[in-house]
Nucleic acid binder design. Sequence first.
RNA 1: CGGGAAAUAGCUCAGCUUGGUAGAGCGCUUGGUUUGGGACCAAGAUGUCGCAGGUUCGAAUCCUGUUUUCCCGACCA
Length: 415
Amino acid sequence: MKQSLLFVPTLRDMPKEAEVISHKILLKGGYIKQSAAGVYSYLPLGYKIIKKIENIIREELDAIGCSELLMPALQSKDLWVESGRWEAYGKELMRLEDRHERAFCLGPTHEEVITSIVRDFINSYKKLPVALYQIQTKFRDEFRPRFGLMRGREFIMKDLYTFHATEEDLDGWYLKVRQAYQNILDRMDLHYRIVSADSGNIGGSSSEEFMILCDIGEDTIVYSDESEFASNSELHNLSVGDPSPDGKGHILQAKGIEAGHIFKLGTKYSVPMKANFIDKDGLTKPIIMGCYGMGISRLLMAVLEQHYKDEKALWPQEIRPFDIHILPLDKEQTANYAIALDVYDKLTKAGYDCLFDDRQESPGVKFKDADLVGIRNRIVVGRRAGEGIFEFKDIKDDTVKEMTFDEIMAMNFKL
RNA sequence: CGGGAAAUAGCUCAGCUUGGUAGAGCGCUUGGUUUGGGACCAAGAUGUCGCAGGUUCGAAUCCUGUUUUCCCGACCA
């Protein structure tokens, strides 16, 4: 990709709206643009990373047997009345009317819709389990949107719903999804902790949250220094130094960003919405459900909170927007530019996704923008290019090596 | 929803106290010089001063209302 063709509107000054580092980098680097409080556009660079995050999630969920679908964001009031949440959900639900004064909401979550789909198609234990997920824009009318993508009123989320004939089957699937979530977060190089949580508006018997550890997190987690005990502080009123409830060790605290939340819903939705099936014994029973959310746009910020240096992005390899960033430094685009173009062509043919800075900008501008784009592997085509020497910079290790073209081609930039 | 701050050029901001032709830096356009970490010189273009009322001969500036944005709290998968 030629950088002149990629719309990356980097900023020289920091927009005043940003308070936290990840938000600052996203705005300054031209990854996102604010449209209203808690409402953002994902610009090409930011959206490219979003798509990489989405694909990691798709790979891990498909691997355990989930199927992707897409449900409507616009949902009729009737379904929400059935589940009882038209009243219960409160002001956070974005409500609207069509021209015939029929009431709708913009979906903050999709238990109602998915349950209405499954109940019409699944009526036998023989067709269970079912695991369906979507990646979609969600709407929640937050009292106070904050920290950019951290708490938005419109945001991208992956939501998975599973349907089972027995509690045991739900338990098994819950653990499978739990492991898939760990794989997903591990692949994004995130430090996190799984904590027990309040199931809140979604409901159900038990739930766990995947907390990305960092100081700007809105949740406080309490955990034991000697055992696996970890919980959202809203469940346990514990202070640092208190004995752990499981009797092992003492309590420590940390701040976390809730990146994922998994629930055993049981029959909370299937009973009121009459999602039943006929079991082996011929009896009609409510389908047992699980639901599993993961905040994708929130992850974009959370990753950055854990991967930056001096207001520069350091994207983990699996979600980097490009494999290699090539910077020809001669502004007049003469001899060195031609050499750089050749390097670009050969690396692209070798299967790498390269970003080539073909803009007629000064070296300083190119370096600054490259730091904001945050691609780990950088090839600078500079004053020694004529003699076949290129500069390879590893942003993560902050090391610079002079290399020949053959040495560069011998490297594996996918790692 | 309580408390605080803010809204002036694409971005960051000054001007407001004490009313009198709309400003700076960066960015943008043109020409020239530069060329390894946001270069330099010169010449340009760019505004419903958030919106609506009011006071006044005259309002970015004073008064009232209102909208929007940010922060703290409360609230919240």
